[in-house]
């Protein structure tokens, strides 16, 4: 059975909370106290539910926000919006393992810091080491850059010049 989100979130927050339903039936909650995100994750995990992904975005003042998207294997989605002006949040991966790769992805692509997120051998997992953190999404030509030179083209030009001068270019 789909959880009573208003009741559950109000219980976690300790006061009555407003859950907004959009026209497609998805539920949205704007979290003011970022420290409570771990409690919300624990509720999602216990249901059981999963973290579908985490979306980065900006508010009207260009301050960063992230949106956690959760699913309960039935019904519609539950989204929790959090303001992160410092680009810092506590990791929910220890509680909700499905948040693991979404958190790592934001770490690399938006330079978010998720405190408590276990480090991995290569540090990076999605973007190559050669690309500066936080400036990604880098372009394909940058991520797949191979060392190219003009040597071949210079030789062709040299041969052509020699040919034009009437010399032997048959090398």
């Amino acid at each position: 059975m789909y959880p009573d989100l208003k009741k559950e979130i109000s219980r976690i927050m300790g006061h009555e909370c407003e859950i907004i339903e959009d026209k497609n039936g998805n539920f949205w909650y704007h979290l003011e106290d970022n420290a409570k995100m771990k409690d919300i994750a624990a509720f999602i995990a216990s249901y059981p539910g999963r973290c579908m992904t985490i979306s980065p975005t900006y508010d009207e003042n260009k301050s960063m926000e992230i949106v956690y998207h959760f699913d309960f294997y039935e019904g519609t989605m539950f989204c929790v919006e959090v303001k992160v002006p410092e680009k810092k949040m506590e990791s929910i991966t220890p509680i909700l393992r499905s948040a693991n790769w979404p958190e790592r992805e934001l770490t690399e692509t938006w330079e978010m810091t998720f405190e408590g997120l276990e480090s991995i051998r290569w540090e990076r997992f999605l973007i190559t080491q050669g690309v500066e953190k936080g400036v990604v999404y880098a372009s394909l030509s940058e991520t797949l850059n191979t060392n190219a030179s003009d040597i071949l083209w210079d030789r062709i030009k040299a041969y052509r010049e020699q040919e034009e001068k009437g010399g032997d270019s048959n090398e």
């Binding site: 051998r121 999605l126 190559t128 990604v136 999404y137 372009s139 991520t143």
Partner: peptide
């Protein structure tokens, strides 16, 4: 096993 991806990231969301 450890898994590493990131060999063909295209930056599509930026585009």
């Amino acid at each position: 096993v450890e898994i590493l991806s990131g060999h063909a990231h295209r930056g599509m969301e930026r585009i």
